[in-house]
Design a protein around this nucleic acid. Structure first.
Length: 374
DNA sequence: GACTCGTGGAT
DNA sequence: TATCCAAGAGT
């Protein structure tokens, strides 16, 4: 049962009806954001990467710290990945940091440390897709390339009352075309900021503030009473829950940590060694699984460990409960590969995932008085 | 196309 | 409390 392909024809008159009130609204209601106070393509690039799937309020402190540490593309390219990840710690989606770092090195070696001005060259950089390339080209270089981020998608789906699934390929293509057609020839940069601000502050996913929307009159969803149902939501998948364990193995003031592989979840971050509890294990068998893990992987007997913390944590695709055990060994053993002993005071110098960072904080604040997080 | 990849805030 | 989801990209 295929529906007729949606057609979103945008002529000059419609473009004016859309952009004129939007830009006027932006004059009085646009946000003052730090990456709008600069024309440095590097800073605009960093902001665009940080803002992927991440809200402005979350990004702000990271943005300032990051640019203080790496004021230029050259500074970023010259840094260690470890340092870059440390500054990204807690922001999530760590591939963004790796790609940013790698792209900076590419820019330094191939483009004299400058962001190129051709779409294809920018688009080819790691971590930069069509939307981010469009934003960089338009905002930093004054060109005119569309974006289709969550804000634009939501505004367009409502404005045109698109009841089809915007994730469907044909609908997505129509939205890209529409986004491109709506861009004004004059000052497309300001337009881009305006439509993103509208989506972020007025045409929000929940409880949109239609009475203050500059597009409320021509908005098709508004007319048809569809605003709170558009864009149509994806079917939510069932979230699985797993139990994990981790061991805080200590010798005097040293702690054993392990670096995660450079691919996959939390790539390149440090953690306290452990593993997932097999799904077929009984609920009460977590400590047994923990003891078995250290016996089999490191030939260590950690019987007598005590529960140090329990940390609930939600990732995008699953939830976990991290059971953290603590144990004191007599002496350090040789480590190789991804493992190393580190002094407690030095733990915070390394990037940890959010869940494991809670262990770090607990060890640094009151190492001998563990407390349970439930 | 379907999956993967984080986290904190809002409701 | 559970769910949603925020300036997406890579595989």
């Amino acid at each position: 049962m295929s529906r007729a392909p949606i057609e979103l024809e945008v002529d000059a008159a419609l473009r004016r009806r859309f952009t004129a009130p939007l830009l006027k609204w932006y004059d009085g209601s646009g946000r003052n954001l730090p990456w709008r106070m600069t024309d440095d393509p590097y800073r605009i690039w960093v902001s665009e990467i940080m803002l992927q799937q991440t809200q402005v309020a979350t990004v702000l402190p990271y943005y300032h710290r990051f640019l203080e540490a790496f004021p230029t593309i050259k500074a970023l390219a010259s840094a260690d990945l470890e340092t870059v990840l440390k500054l990204w710690q807690g922001l999530g989606y760590y591939a963004r940091a790796r790609h940013l770092h790698r792209a900076a090195q590419t820019l330094l070696s191939r483009y004299a440390g400058k962001m190129p001005k051709s779409f294809d060259a920018v688009y080819a950089l790691p971590g930069i897709g069509r939307s981010t390339a469009g934003a960089i080209l338009t905002i930093a270089h004054g060109k005119r390339y569309p974006i289709l981020d969550g804000n634009v998608r939501r505004v367009l789906c409502r404005f045109f009352a698109i009841e089809e699934d915007p994730r469907e390929k044909s609908v997505e293509a129509a939205l890209w075309h529409c986004s491109e057609q709506l861009m004004p020839r004059r000052n497309p940069s300001r337009y881009l900021q305006a439509i993103m601000d509208l989506g972020a502050t007025v045409c929000t996913p929940r409880q949109p503030d239609c009475p203050h929307c500059p597009l409320q009159k021509p908005c098709a969803a508004r007319k048809q009473g569809l605003t709170d149902r558009l864009p149509v939501k994806a079917v939510s998948k069932k979230v699985l829950h797993f139990d994990y364990f981790a061991g805080v193995l200590r010798v005097d003031d040293f702690v054993l940590i392990r670096r995660r592989p450079l691919q996959g979840l939390l790539a390149g971050l440090w953690e306290f060694p452990g593993a997932r509890v097999d799904s077929h294990e009984k609920k009460g068998a977590v400590m047994a699984a923990y003891e078995k893990f250290f016996r089999e992987t490191l030939a260590l007997n950690v019987r007598g460990s005590h529960l140090f913390m329990e940390i609930p944590h939600a990732f995008t695709h699953f939830k976990m409960t991290l059971h953290v055990f603590s144990f004191r060994l007599k002496k350090r053993f040789q480590t190789g590969g991804p493992m190393m002993w580190v002094e407690r005071e030095s733990l915070a110098a390394h990037p940890f995932s959010s869940a494991h960072q809670k262990i770090v904080l607990q060890l640094c604040q009151s190492p001998d008085r563990p407390r349970l997080f439930v």
